[in-house]
Design a protein around this nucleic acid. Structure first.
Lengths: 109, 109
DNA sequence: TTTTTTAATCGTAATATTGCGATGTATTAT
DNA sequence: ATAATACATCGCAATATTACGATTAAAAAA
């Protein structure tokens, strides 16, 4: 117990849940927004921008990386993070389909 | 420790994270899809449809209700669940804005 | 009234997440 | 070579999540 029963769901449901889980934390939303805002990649500026310890930021970055939402390339001493366009696009497509599968006009109870 | 430091994030970031967290589980995605699919509201059909215990489904429904994504009205012995159009619309708007704030053409590293 | 049905809630076990100090690991600067 | 810088990782404590059996609550049927 305590673990999600992934076996009983579809591949699609599980994959979407993984991506959403990666997004579902204010720190990770803030990190992504910061990466997007600075347009080019940023590095450990996140530690000074957000009020979290370096270890914590690094952990959140790892989760985003594991989910595939961002990618990091070593740039000398620092690491350069940016959005993974492919996965981002996938997320957009899947979420759009999911959210639009509900017809807002259909009000029932 | 173990708790999210909500104080250091914006209201918007926290609210979006709450909604995404509610979505970020395959069971809850499946529940929402089922509610949408059956168009009208459904009740404990979810227990037979998905392979989870009644207590577990009820718990997931509660989380979706707490997040505001669904609403339930008592319909005799059973309970009728449906999407909350207002919150659903909000989620659509906020997610769209967030996902589209990244320009897919901007490839950096 | 008693029984049945449907769903919420309680209690509990297993596991996951969050956050951080401390430490390790490269790479650049001196 | 040594020191400094930037991150990653380890280890730990606090808390949250997931899942479910058992119980409770409320309405409908008998």
């Amino acid at each position: 117990m305590g673990t999600t029963k992934t076996e009983i769901f579809t591949e699609k449901q599980n994959k979407l849940a993984v991506l959403l889980k990666a997004l579902a934390h204010p720190a990770r939303i803030a990190i992504l927004q910061e990466i997007i805002k600075t347009n080019a990649c940023i590095c450990g500026d996140l530690v000074s921008e957000l009020g979290l310890a370096q270890a914590t930021i690094s952990q959140h970055l790892k989760e985003l990386k594991t989910a595939g939402l961002i990618q990091g390339t070593i740039e000398g001493v620092s690491v350069c993070y940016c959005i993974n366009p492919t996965v981002w696009k996938q997320l957009q497509t899947q979420l759009k389909a999911f959210l639009e599968s509900y017809d807002l006009k259909t009000n029932c109870c």
